[in-house]
Design a protein around this nucleic acid. Structure first.
Lengths: 251, 251
DNA sequence: CGAATAGTGTCTCTCAGACATTATATG
DNA sequence: CATATAATGTCTGAGAGACACTATTCG
């Protein structure tokens, strides 16, 4: 291919280094408690018009996490969120232009905090509902209910998303990640928390058991506290509110 | 520092890329069932004379995993082992020479398969017993029983080792990693497996409970099978041997 | 009243941890 | 005999999962 020859012509005989990018998977939760992922539509080749995970090159003086946060800021204008390194993807050929090693990060952001805006490399940016969690992965766009198939994703991004979904589901039971999706960590109901848990794990839970465990584990360990406030946001009968007692981000 | 100025002088105005290395943490098990880690003594600056995790630059056409396997082959002459990506360390300044992003891999290698040899960048290579698993990390060299403190480790390698130990202990219960340390996966006793489990988890287990669970879970799921063979290698009374039925590596 | 969620109680089964006991081989 | 590991058994309490039931508020 002449495109490849062109790129190899850039090489000047010195040691040829791979490029490093930080990619960021921004997960959020729709108002009807469906797990959502931020994708951007590529406006350049390769994969022009396909949907991709936002990301960009890591600057020489910037840490990987800083690079991920910078991308996050550019796309969503949020700063202070839960962020976790996912995995590093580096197979030669995953980007047809040149050798790219991508360090993928996962961010969990409550939806009201998101102010989505397409970055320089993207035509548009949108949140996609993640409907079925059988790792075959199928997305449905929020407004139009249009299926987004794996073929419409750029690069190896379907694999990256699968990895992220597995990681999130796996960490649900022994970490606090579900709390990171709450609209207001300082005042939320058991119902909200349960719905978030269901969305991330991909399966229904028994309401009564979940409440027992939820109360039992987190109240006893002081992670949450019962408040005097009641909320009728999601129900007719006012529900007890709880307060998450740890720092709002970091994990 | 004039060393830094020298390095920055190398920059020729083009986009300055970080270097990428693949580092490999080779864990093994001593004959008395202590968890061991392969370290190499640096023969060049920086950190000359300090102990380090072996690693090297990722070639332009080589996958991250291939790079890790190449390093592994150079240091230990083993090929076909359990290998897993650990984490990517990329803070600016972690290598005083230039910006280095290290993708760390963990390999689990039964000791008899190791044929340790120092690579080009190392004066010597040795296995160190990991004695206490309180994440303060202290090593004792195998022969001399000399303490190796965190200060004697190069770069941010103490942090990398801590990360690896946590990961291994965490995956012990829901993966097959303990089997990867067995001298002979096709014929081993419950005693051997128990000792490996203890070494990786860093705590004693109740023998009878462990056997019940060990038999219960793995026999029922077909992961292991009971053999007719008996072994007196670790006991006076001959013990039942078991056979691990899955592929010898990969995880 | 029905609808929808809030919230409580109960039963079973599995599993982890603690501990006791017997068996088998060697010196 | 003592010793060291092999191998089996028993008890308890915690937790997961299934399910039944009552309470509260609105329209």
């Amino acid at each position: 291919m002449n495109e490849k020859e062109l790129l190899e012509g850039y090489d000047d005989g010195e040691y040829r280094r791979p490029s490093v990018t930080a990619d960021i998977l921004v997960f959020s939760m729709s108002s009807d408690f469906k797990l959502q992922l931020l994708l951007v539509k590529r406006k350049n080749h390769p994969y022009m018009g396909k949907w991709a995970i936002p990301g960009g090159f890591v600057d020489y003086d910037e840490s990987l996490e800083e690079a991920a946060l910078r991308e996050l800021r550019e796309e969503t204008h949020v700063e202070d969120v839960y962020l976790e390194q996912l995995y590093t993807f580096g197979k030669p050929g995953r980007d047809p232009r040149t050798r790219v090693i991508s360090v993928a990060y996962v961010a969990l952001v409550p939806k009201e905090r998101l102010h989505i805006q397409a970055g320089d490399d993207a035509a548009e940016a949108a949140l996609f509902d993640i409907e079925n969690i059988d790792w075959g992965i199928r997305f449905y766009s929020p407004e139009m209910r249009e299926a987004l198939s794996e073929e419409e994703l750029a690069f190896d991004h379907a694999e990256i998303i699968r990895t992220a979904l597995k990681r999130l589901a796996g960490k649900l039971d022994y970490t606090d990640i579900a709390f990171q999706m709450l609209e207001d960590k300082r005042c939320f109901t058991a119902y909200e928390f349960e719905k978030i848990y269901e969305a991330i794990s991909g399966r229904k839970v028994e309401k009564s058991n979940f409440r027992r465990d939820f109360i039992g584990r987190y109240i006893k360990t002081g992670v949450i506290e019962e408040l005097d406030v009641k909320s009728s946001r999601y129900s007719i009968k006012p529900a007890t509110c709880y307060c998450y007692k740890r720092q709002s981000h970091r994990g």
